[in-house]
Design a protein around this nucleic acid. Structure first.
Lengths: 282, 282
DNA sequence: CTGGAAATGAAATAAGTATTTCATTATAAA
DNA sequence: TTTATAATGAAATACTTATTTCATTTCCAG
């Protein structure tokens, strides 16, 4: 109980992490709160924090004691100190990174991270500007009406395809990922039935496999395309086509915008399903 | 005295500036302190702030009253709020988006897209704030020194794992994706050799397979972890651990921040390789 | 089961803090 | 200079908040 207390929040967090397993049920609950919501801890009163962490106030004091502090307030100081010292606002960090990248020819990972996050944010803003409401509604409708949805995408696009399949399954939609294992993508594509739908994702350099898959699908199966250019070889076959401009940093392209779009379609679908259920039951 | 008080710190600061000249000597002294040392005001007690601003405690209360607040504590809230909200602009937008979508019972896909993009932007800002330079450098070094890198992640994390593998191969690094086909993840993990590295990605609810994989790796193989909480079961085994807070909209989590981090590490590695080559050839 | 130790939570108590009061001092107008 | 008014600060008070206590429950080891 009278062991030496941690002197920084980082130290405390390390100790909490290390001892997490050995703590009692309630103390573990507090541990969670400390790690997950440090800002609330920094400002809150014992009563408020106790309420939000769903423990009695005394448990907070016990927790502090268990980590060597005199009392809760003593521990809280660490949380406050952290908040005071580090508030390098986003803008400040951008400025620092920029300055640094100009003075040294060495490209540090932190600079890269700054560039990627910034570019991705720009891409997000673009996405919302350029995506059309009708297309979005239509895409949702297509999947909603389909008995099953097949998704195809290779190389970089595979990541998006994979996520799409995950998201759809997550909301209880039948989703099949055409992964081309053993080069059998054509065969996988022929398993599509008339009432299914196909989602194809393809970026430069457009994998021919994706195009092949589309060509092999039965007539009448609706196609949703996510690609990076109006001139992509896929656009002409699409019932709905999303042209997504991804962030590009040092000739490397992101996928965040496409992922965000996929997520939106999936959740939009979830709401559609829910609404139709409620609507028809009344 | 009972005028309407400012509602944000910015408003208060504006008012202080405007009325600065008309204030009495002591109140002006307080005004100075409020403007110059807002962080101390946010955390300090009346007694401490009074001491540091070299005025009696009562003057602080008078100052607060003069600007329309009930008391000092009331005014202090503004200072605290400022410190809590990390990204006022985007948080505001998220809040507005949420509010808007609550007024109508129908949730349109476009509204969802607005929410997702906004939340993802916030997540990007958080990412750059919370990722530590040293960790980033260390992660790059680990992969740089490894003969081959193995990547493991199941369910949602699989998408990130997949992208990581893609990105590493793209820059000519040997990367193996532990996909657990046929439940053989343990066997896949045992193929790691001493000089390899392992990257593990795991989010709630932490798949036990990932943990199993880690446990099966040979001793001494360095481990890089990407997860969503300091208390994740993986952190304790990690040589480098990134805790990434993903955007969450309507209880659906994104992956954009993790993807961005993966991208950064991969490209950071590419630069490292390039720099080492140039360095040694001179 | 059963006894004993640890954990828990409600309530009492202690500590700390903000606010108000009021006597005193400075300021400005007549 | 005088007087009315505003400003000021030390100390008392009222409040809030942290901490401790103790009766009760839970959890194990025997």
């Amino acid at each position: 109980m009278t062991s030496i207390p941690p002197e920084t929040l980082a130290e405390l967090e390390a100790e909490i992490t290390a001892r997490h397993k050995t703590l009692s049920k309630r103390l573990r609950q507090v541990a969670h709160f400390m790690i997950e919501r440090p800002k609330e801890v920094a400002f809150g009163t014992v009563a408020i924090i106790a309420r939000d962490a769903d423990v009695p106030p005394s448990t907070l004091v016990r927790f502090a004691n268990a980590f060597g502090f005199q009392g809760f307030s003593d521990m809280q100081k660490l949380f406050r100190a952290k908040l005071v010292e580090e508030t390098p606002s986003y803008n400040e960090r951008v400025r620092l990174a920029r300055k640094h990248s100009q003075t040294s020819q060495h490209t540090s990972p932190m600079e890269l991270l700054e560039e990627f996050t910034t570019s991705n944010m720009v891409a997000m803003e673009q996405l919302i500007k350029e995506v059309n409401t009708n297309d979005l509604e239509k895409a949702v409708s297509i999947i909603y009406c389909a008995q099953a949805t097949h998704i195809v995408g290779f190389r970089r696009s595979f990541v998006v395809a994979c996520y799409f399949a995950y998201a759809l399954r997550h909301i209880d939609q039948r989703a099949f990922l055409i992964d081309g294992v053993g080069g059998l993508y054509r065969e996988q594509a022929t398993t599509l039935s008339k009432n299914d739908a196909l989602i194809a994702i393809s970026f430069k350099p457009y994998a021919t496999e994706t195009q092949d898959t589309i060509m092999s699908k039965p007539n009448g199966v609706p196609l949703i395309v996510i690609t990076d250019s109006q001139l992509s070889p896929l656009t002409q076959y699409a019932d709905v086509c999303f042209v997504v401009k991804e962030a590009e940093v040092r000739s490397f392209r992101s996928l965040t915008a496409s992922l965000c779009l996929a997520q939106t379609i999936a959740i939009g679908l979830a709401y559609r399903v829910e609404e139709e259920l409620n609507g028809s039951s009344q």
